[in-house]
């Protein structure tokens, strides 16, 4: 167990190293999630607009 704690602490440098990795992963994954969410919304909008234009 202590060897995992040691690895995590990185001789005290962990406080600098871990935020770098965590924030990077969050931002990179977040970019993908935002892109898919935008895509879903756009497709919904376009689907709504199709019947409207056909009925005109």
């Amino acid at each position: 167990m202590t060897q995992w704690a040691d690895w995590f602490a990185m001789n005290g440098d962990g406080v600098f190293v871990w935020p770098c990795y965590i924030v990077t992963v969050l931002v990179l994954v977040g970019n993908l999630l935002i892109a898919t969410r935008n895509r879903r919304r756009l497709l919904e909008d376009i689907r709504l607009q199709i019947p409207m234009e056909n009925s005109r």
């Binding site: 990185m10 001789n11 440098d13 190293v17 770098c20 990795y21 990077t24």
Partner: peptide
Amino acid sequence: MGDTVRIMYVHVPV
């Protein structure tokens, strides 16, 4: 630098 060198593996690519 010890362990802080690990920051390089995210800093340099991005």
